[in-house]
Design a protein around this nucleic acid. Structure first.
Lengths: 229, 229
DNA sequence: ACAAAAGTGTTGAACGTACACCCATGC
DNA sequence: GCATGGGTGTACGTTCAACACTTTTGT
């Protein structure tokens, strides 16, 4: 069932830069391409935008189909439209980035036999198309945004320790932070609720668990408050 | 000469949110639509992306064709792809925003008979499509970015007074700034060169003219410096 | 008892904020 | 000489950065 237009049209795709975090560092979800071009290469999950779905819907669908993920933070990153991105024809891709919490969603390592796998962002394989450039853009955005928007919490389980939160910032910002200053700062922001639970099964003193309070954050923002770490 | 594809394809356009600044406030460049849909409505300059041009090229071409502008700051803003943006068919638009210096480029008011005109952002007419939403996104970006990237200078002539710079920030951030503190701050940043010229034809003491030093800024950024106002 | 990480305060330096007057120029 | 905006410094409070030891728990 062919579709005909007066002028040539570019193909439109979505791709997703999916970040996760575990105790060995920041991770990125890639899938192994089953078909040409770049068959066998690792690539960002993504695919064609259908005529009846919006861009975010397309991104969510692709992630569900290719990786089984659902219910994650998803935000538009950038649109890449250079002429020779794809050797077959003109393809414009709208890229989203997602933040998922590896502890609750996927134990760790590869998800299943679907060809998806988590890679350390410091040690990525050769990638298809211009996906290396796209990932650089995603990393830059994450690094820039994490300091003034509370998106870091999306990479952690609902309840987390202050040390986990600190390691998150240290990993993303790629620099060490002072423990006492960090704790003072995040607690003073007033968007963390202290729970009455502590870690379990750790071979040392168990740390208190905290929770990010989204409602409180929204209230404070209305009053002109600025999140910043 | 028709083009045929196996699946339906969305049309791809670029639109431009063009900001300018004069002494009455922040301005936006709009064009009056000559054809349906929304004939006679004001709209953002823009049009279809050709198969042989990149997205930025398309944005630059549309601005040249529709408004005569050249040589301005241009950066991708966001891509809008909801299903019913355009009543005719599925249209995905990649939006860029531009910053132009009204004093050097266009005297003021409308540019020519092309149907383009400058509007105060506080007092915009009814707009075609979802262009009001796009403009809100552009304003939010400008407001957010002007504080930590030296993009404000793009709205001023090459040589400007500190008072002009202050008015720029006050206009965009929509709040008054303290004159002495502002001057201390921007001078300490070390990216302004004091020229040995002063204003001419003003009915009071002439202010010294300054210039933004792009090279110096790039050097400082390499050394880890953060622009912030 | 030892290993491992949790938790906790103080001080000095830098920075942000509030604030008012004299100066130079054109009319 | 007056109206208009240009240009300047200080004092106070807040925030940031550097820094080390005790506590808790499991093994």
């Amino acid at each position: 069932m062919p579709y005909t237009y007066e002028y040539a049209r570019a193909a439109l795709t979505v791709d997703c830069v999916v970040f996760g975090l575990d105790d060995t560092g920041l991770k990125l979800l890639l899938i192994k391409r089953a078909i040409e071009p770049f068959q066998g290469c690792w690539a960002l999950p993504g695919g064609f935008v259908r005529i009846g779905e919006s861009l975010v819907e397309a991104a969510k669908r692709e992630l569900r189909e290719e990786t089984g993920l659902e219910g994650f933070f998803l935000e538009q990153l950038y649109t890449f439209g250079d002429l020779n991105r794809d050797p077959r024809e003109r393809v414009v891709t709208v890229v989203y980035y997602a933040l998922v919490n590896l502890r609750d969603h996927l134990p760790h390592g590869a998800s299943d036999a679907s060809g998806a796998a988590w890679f350390d962002v410091q040690d990525l394989p050769k990638l298809a198309f211009d996906h290396d450039k796209i990932i650089d853009t995603g990393l830059a955005r994450l690094k820039g945004k994490v300091r003034y928007q509370p998106i870091g919490f999306e990479l952690l389980p609902a309840k987390f320790t202050l040390s986990e939160l600190q390691r998150l910032y240290e990993t993303i910002l790629e620099r060490p932070l002072d423990k006492r200053n960090f704790r003072k700062k995040v607690v003073q922001l007033g968007v963390l609720d202290e729970t009455d639970e502590v870690q379990e099964d750790v071979a040392h003193r168990a740390a208190r668990l905290y929770r990010f309070n989204r409602k409180r954050y929204a209230q404070l923002v209305k009053r002109g408050f600025n999140f910043e770490i």
